[in-house]
């Protein structure tokens, strides 16, 4: 995140946020001196291994847990003291969907809508938007996990939120359900809603988010635009004379490392520039492959000491 972002542009801001839990085995620090800043607009990923403090941070922001220390603000308004002033602009799903199992989906949403003075018609609109309109009268307990997740998202839409906080929204969904939810999140982000997407699924954040914060052991490890986090692209180059090619590219200011029979070339410039430089030197490519670091690599490097329960791309694919 840009350090020049003014706090008035921030939808979520925490400073020195800390949460301790006391138990029989002593005090455990779940969140430690966390400075989180989420700018207005787009989808912001909140990434960390299981137990890294993501959900605790979200619960503190939403007034469900009290911070041990630090300050928090939503839309510039201090919370939890003035949470009531801004909660109408915030939709949230925290952990698993939580509704009365014996009530129908419609009854569950009606109670929530009426508690904040939202018209009953908004319930049907929200249910239709998440594709549950035809199952609105079914009891919540008869829903599949995917339907429950969609109902939870429908509940967040009742308030027409400016900020949507989603904690692991694709947990337990089948591939089609995951795609639906991701598309919905992207649509909301494009519609001007700021989305904070908490996830331990790296591919999800990389696919959906425009910016991300990575935390581990309750502390912030890095934050910024996904593009910036991923860093510059490198290329694998195969050419008949790697040594000569390396000299040409290095002379053009590129970082070159000779690997067995190929070159690893680091540059911010497009691949066509490499092609042209080598061709002008009479060297012709047999391979030019862009190699880009993914979020998984970045994440694994940052959380080397805190890597428990994280789902890597390959695990998710399984």
């Amino acid at each position: 995140m840009s350090s020049t972002t003014s706090s008035t542009d921030l939808v979520i801001e925490t400073r020195g946020l800390r949460k301790e839990f006391s138990g029989r085995s002593g005090t455990r620090v779940a969140v430690d001196d966390l400075d989180l800043a989420v700018p207005r607009g787009g989808v912001h990923g909140f990434l960390g291994p299981n137990g890294s403090g993501k959900t605790t941070t979200i619960r503190m922001l939403l007034g469900l847990a009290r911070p041990t220390a630090g300050t928090m603000a939503l839309f510039g308004t201090p919370v939890p003291d003035h949470l009531d002033d801004v909660i109408g602009r915030v939709g949230a799903v925290v952990e698993s969907p939580k509704f009365s199992p014996t009530f129908s989906a419609r009854q569950n949403l009606l109670l929530l809508a009426r508690s904040v003075g939202v018209a009953d018609t908004a319930v049907d609109e929200a249910l239709d938007r998440v594709g549950l309109g035809n199952r609105a009268e079914d009891r919540f307990k008869s829903y599949s996990l995917g339907m429950k997740q969609r109902l939870a998202i429908a509940a967040t839409l009742l308030k027409s939120p400016d900020l949507l906080i989603l904690d692991e929204p694709t947990n337990g969904l089948d591939p089609a359900g995951i795609r639906e939810i991701r598309e919905l999140i992207r649509d909301l982000g494009e519609a001007g809603v700021t989305v904070l997407l908490s996830s331990h699924i790296l591919a999800e954040v990389q696919q959906v988010c425009t910016s991300a914060t990575i935390i581990g052991n309750g502390r912030m490890l890095t934050s910024g635009k996904v593009e910036d986090l991923l860093g510059r692209t490198s290329y694998r180059v195969r050419v008949g004379d790697p040594t000569a090619a390396a000299a040409v590219l290095e002379a053009a200011g590129m970082d070159v490392r000779i690997d067995t029979g190929s070159l690893d070339v680091g540059t911010d410039e497009p691949g066509a520039r490499i092609t042209r430089l080598l061709a002008e030197a009479g060297l012709f490519l047999s391979e030019l492959t862009p190699v880009r670091a993914d979020l998984e690599t970045i994440f694994l490097e940052l959380t080397a000491d805190d890597r428990m329960g994280v789902a890597t791309t390959s695990e998710v694919a399984r």
């Binding site: 939403l62 007034g63 469900l64 939890p80 949470l83 009531d84 909660i87 915030v90 949230a92 925290v94 698993s96 939580k98 509704f99 009365s100 199992p101 569950n108 109670l111 929530l112 508690s115 904040v116 509940a155 308030k159």
Partner: peptide, 12 residues
């Protein structure tokens, strides 16, 4: 059922 936390997200 945990619905208390859901209610508090609407009425904090």
């Amino acid at each position: 059922t945990g619905s208390m936390s859901n209610q508090l997200l609407f009425v904090p």
